[in-house]
Computed example of a mutant assay.
Amino acid sequence: MLGIAAAVLFFIAFVINAGDITTNDVFSSSNIMLIGLGLLALHVAGVGGTWSGRSRRR
């Protein structure tokens, strides 16, 4: 799930950068890319990869 969110953020950053869309400093393409890289790092580390449901062990 975090990998998909990172891909969406990378796409948004690409559109901002390719379209020369002016945004404020918080939503600049480099900041959105850094957030995407953080999400991608969490995905590769295994955070959020499994369901945390109860397991039935006997």
Rank of each mutant, 00 (worst) to 15 (best):
I16A: 07
I4E: 04
A41N: 11
R58M: 11
G53V: 13
N31R: 01
S55V: 15
L9I: 04
F14R: 11
R54P: 12
I32R: 01
T22S: 13
L9Y: 06
F27N: 09
S55I: 15
F27H: 08
I21L: 08
S28N: 02
I16M: 10
L34A: 10
W51A: 15
V44D: 10
G48D: 12
S30H: 01
G38I: 06
G46T: 08
L2V: 10
H43E: 01
D25N: 06
G38D: 01
S29F: 02
W51E: 15
V15F: 02
R58F: 11
S28R: 00
V26R: 03
G3C: 10
I21Q: 08
N31Y: 04
M1Y: 03
A18K: 02
I21V: 10
I21D: 07
G38Y: 04
A5D: 00
R56S: 15
M33N: 05
I4T: 04
L40E: 06
I16Y: 07
S55Y: 12
G48P: 09
F14I: 10
I16S: 08
N24V: 14
I35M: 08
R57M: 13
L2F: 14
T50P: 08
W51Q: 15
D25E: 08
T22R: 10
I16P: 06
S29K: 02
V8A: 08
T22M: 11
I21P: 04
A13F: 05
D20M: 08
A13S: 12
R58K: 11
R58T: 10
A6D: 00
G49D: 13
A45Y: 12
V44G: 08
G36M: 02
V44A: 12
L39W: 00
I16L: 12
I16K: 07
L37P: 00
W51H: 13
W51C: 14
L42I: 08
L9Q: 06
G38H: 03
L40T: 03
L39Y: 05
W51T: 15
T50M: 12
W51L: 15
F14M: 12
V8Q: 00
G38N: 06
M1Q: 04
F27W: 11
D20Y: 09
A18W: 03
I4Q: 05
F27C: 09
N31I: 01
G48M: 10
G53N: 14
G3I: 07
V8R: 02
V44R: 10
A18L: 00
A45H: 09
R56C: 13
T50S: 13
G46I: 09
N17A: 07
S55H: 11
W51R: 14
H43S: 05
A45E: 12
S28T: 01
V15A: 02
A6V: 00
R57W: 13
I16R: 07
G49R: 12
I35G: 04
A13M: 07
G36S: 03
G49Q: 12
V44Y: 09
A5P: 02
V8P: 00
T22K: 11
M1F: 01
L42F: 08
A18P: 02
L9V: 04
V8E: 01
G46F: 09
G3T: 06
I12F: 07
L39M: 05
A7N: 05
V47D: 10
D25Y: 06
M33K: 01
